[in-house]
């Protein structure tokens, strides 16, 4: 059983032991004695559990316990926050959510806001996905060319990703307001002012635009990484064969980029379904309910409405959770299929 390994020094890059490193070392050193005692007391076999314990505790208290409580909320009624003091109502909340004369018309539903949220979220997610993936792909392709100052341009497209949703929304709200920059430009070009955030269609369009503006850079990075992983000699071979550029794109670039593209598509989908903050600050869900999303419905039902209806919110979250679960499974399945294909 002799292993043939390169000298270790080649593998990890030695970190500089700067001031920060020394501070961390000193802080962690405080636990030396208690943890050594723990190891003596419990034995080596218990140490992995000891290391895992804090995280498990946090997951348990703030994820698994809440999931359980959510299930209880969804089948109990009343306004009390303590599950033990809520009367059992069975599937009432789900029935309430599903109580629609026609699913095509939210106005006929008992919980019309939920269904408007669903419809808006679907519209938002659909168009946002097209715009997001399209623009990210084009940007990645341009950034992958031999251009000067690629690092700078990459940074330009990326930096809105770091901005908080509130900041993003306020930046655009300021530009889109009635006397804002955009309307000034419209007027200067001889047009008329448009109330961008007051007209429902415009508001939805801008919600989509702003979210693409804010997150496109992230997906561009993923796609760019994928493009850069395609070996250059493939392109050189295609050039030697006299392959026309269109064919190179459709037959080489796109198939080779496909795994990354799938990741991006599903991520956009998953994030789109959970859209809340930017749109909430930009439009408040309005005008009326024109940009109200499912998550905003859940948030308002549980927290912002005069009567806090945890049961209804819980039921809606379970439906949303089921959808997200399905989407994630889709992602995993696609990723697995892809890697299987790559191996074959």
């Amino acid at each position: 059983m002799s292993s043939t390994q390169a000298p270790t020094q080649a593998a990890p890059k030695p970190a500089r032991e700067g001031l920060g490193g020394r501070v961390v070392a000193a802080a962690l050193g405080l636990f030396d004695a208690p943890m050594a005692w723990l190891q003596r007391a419990l034995g080596l076999g218990a140490m992995p559990y000891a290391f895992l314990a804090p995280n498990v505790l946090f997951f348990g208290v703030f994820v698994f316990l809440p999931i359980a409580i959510n299930l209880v909320y969804a089948v109990t009624g009343g306004v009390n926050i303590y599950p033990s003091q809520r009367p059992f109502v069975g599937a009432d909340h789900f029935r309430a959510l599903g109580d629609c004369a026609s699913f095509l018309d939210p106005a006929t539903c008992r919980e019309d806001h939920f269904w408007r949220g669903v419809r808006n979220t679907l519209v938002f997610t659909f168009f946002q996905m097209i715009a997001m993936v399209g623009s990210a792909l084009v940007t990645a392709l341009v950034l992958n060319r031999r251009i000067v100052a690629r690092g700078f341009f990459r940074a330009v497209f990326f930096f809105p990703v770091l901005l908080s949703p509130v900041v993003v929304a306020l930046i655009w709200k300021w530009i889109l307001q009635r006397d804002g920059l955009l309307n000034a430009a419209l007027v200067a070009a001889g047009g008329e002012k448009i109330l961008f955030l007051v007209e429902p269609t415009w508001a939805m369009a801008w919600a989509i635009f702003v979210s693409v503006w804010a997150h496109m850079g992230f997906y561009t990075l993923i796609l760019l990484a994928g493009l850069q992983a395609i070996p250059a000699d493939i392109y050189e071979a295609a050039e030697m064969d006299g392959t026309p550029p269109t064919r190179v794109f459709w037959r080489l670039t796109l198939p080779l980029l496909w795994p990354n593209l799938v990741v991006v598509l599903v991520l956009v989908l998953i994030r789109g379904v959970q859209t809340f903050d930017e749109v909430f600050v930009l439009t408040g869900g309005g005008p009326g309910t024109a940009t109200l999303m499912v998550v905003q419905y859940i948030y308002e039902t549980a927290f912002a409405n005069p009567v806090q209806n945890f049961g209804l919110a819980g039921a809606a979250s379970i439906l949303l959770g089921a959808l997200l679960f399905a989407l994630t499974m889709l992602q995993l399945a696609l990723a697995r299929g892809k890697s299987k294909e790559a191996r074959a």
Binding site: F59, L65, P66, I67, N70, I81, F303, A313, L324
Partner: peptide
């Protein structure tokens, strides 16, 4: 368990986490 929690955004457990925190 870790992979499982990866799929659960706080979005969908807002109210119960609120209860736990309270």
């Amino acid at each position: 368990m870790v992979i499982g929690t990866l799929m659960i955004p706080i979005t969908i457990i807002l109210a119960p986490v609120y209860l736990v925190v309270s």
